[in-house]
Design a binder for these strands. Structure first.
Lengths: 232, 232
DNA sequence: GCAAAAGTGTTTTCTATACACCCATGT
DNA sequence: ACATGGGTGTATAGAAAACACTTTTGC
């Protein structure tokens, strides 16, 4: 096999930005970096690509290692490659973001990483350019969520409309009119009303809904104009 | 300086997908690959990242080498990293797409690359996964152009509305109603009407317009819903 | 009975769409 | 005079936005 001559290879890492939502707060999962140097600083979960692994595969592996989860919504965000972004050694990082159901996440698996959930507005200083990456991920999520029903990936199988609305309000950091919200969400036909209620957050209780997965898939591309133009 | 141990570095390339528009046809610029092996096959213009170069910088350099152009619309598309995507040697490719004014492009500069413009529908077979990349770029351009005024980057300083409309029709591969198109485009306030006409494509002539650059910048984010829902 | 959250309709404005004819000019 | 492409207006339907009160129920 021929080789390209005189080219300097570099390390390629994949970093994962993992979002979760507990029904009230949008959160980010970060770890305490285990390897020297810069040990014990907060960091995104990442790793280097394996010899027989593609980028998506590496992202899935890294996500599985930290969360124990398969079949998660995962999307490539951007590649970062400043020569000095990682002071240890030149590393190009390909960044993914994941939206997970925080309830499926089990703490045991990740004890070795000292992982912790932070509210989005309280994310600590992270190593290297990781805070920039998180900001870019939020921008992309806002963009995507305005056009496609991706935020359902953050919810459990059964959820209430107030939970869903709060999620949208957190993502866009602005209040949404509740009547218009319900009208749009029901008009989308994506929700199936359940007969029982969640009584944990009010006396009256809020009906559970679940997602119509077929319609969700079918309408993924056409779920447009979801966010009110006047929001924020 | 410490190093990460036991990690295998790989080559990182940047490939550029270069689009142009001649007033009638949307086109792609590709080169005849100069280096063995797989010499003389059509390929995107690319190169490996330099030691002191970031990814955007590498993309700009590569674009400059081939087109002689600075200050071009350039956007990172995606990173590709299958272990066997380049059979010569493991290479992760970070792909950018560029939208250039084809009239600013001067043929001399790139004679050494045997560059050639192809109509988008007649792009030949390219090496590796380059055809997949081109398709992804077109998808992204359609997405972006529906929300943001990026297609102006393909036009010369002065252009006519029929040219602009044809461009949109090519990008979306579907006819657009001319009265509705003019209404929307003038409503956007982005165009400044000139007093003279382009007579090259009709006896009557079509007025030239130029872009209001300040408004273009200001409205970049809010230029929404440009493409008719019924197109195609 | 009251506090706290869930749920429900109507009106108005705006935007998108469909649609067909006259205009200007060079030959 | 005619062929060719450029340019113009209106009516209709659908979507978005603004807006406030009633319901339920545990305490």
């Amino acid at each position: 096999m021929g080789k390209y001559l005189n080219q300097k290879p570099v390390l390629v890492a994949v970093d994962c930005i993992i979002f979760g939502y507990d029904g009230d707060q949008l959160k980010l999962l970060v770890i305490k970096r285990a390897i020297e140097p810069i040990k014990d600083k907060w960091s995104l979960m990442g790793g280097f690509i394996g010899e027989n692994e593609d980028l998506d595969g590496a992202a899935k592996r890294i996500l599985l290692e930290l969360t124990g989860l398969h079949d998660v919504y995962l999307e490539q965000l951007h590649a970062y490659g400043s020569p000095d972004r990682d002071p240890i050694e030149r590393t190009v990082s390909v960044v993914y973001f994941a939206l997970i159901d925080i309830h499926k996440y089990s703490k045991q698996i990740n004890d070795q990483y000292h992982a912790e959930w932070f509210k989005l507005k309280e994310v600590p200083e992270l190593i290297f350019d990781h805070n920039v990456m998180v900001k870019a991920a939020m921008d992309k999520i806002r963009y995507q969520a305005a056009l496609h029903p991706i935020l359902f990936e953050l919810l459990p199988k059964r959820f209430t409309i107030p939970q869903l609305q709060t999620l949208y309000e957190q993502v866009y950091d602005s209040p949404i009119d509740n009547r218009n919200f319900i009208r749009k969400i029901t008009a989308s036909g994506l929700l199936i009303k359940q007969s029982d209620k969640d009584k944990s957050s009010s006396r009256r209780g809020a009906f559970y809904f679940k997602l119509d997965k077929n319609k969700h898939k079918a309408q993924f591309q056409s779920f447009l104009n979801f966010i009110p133009k006047t929001s924020k």
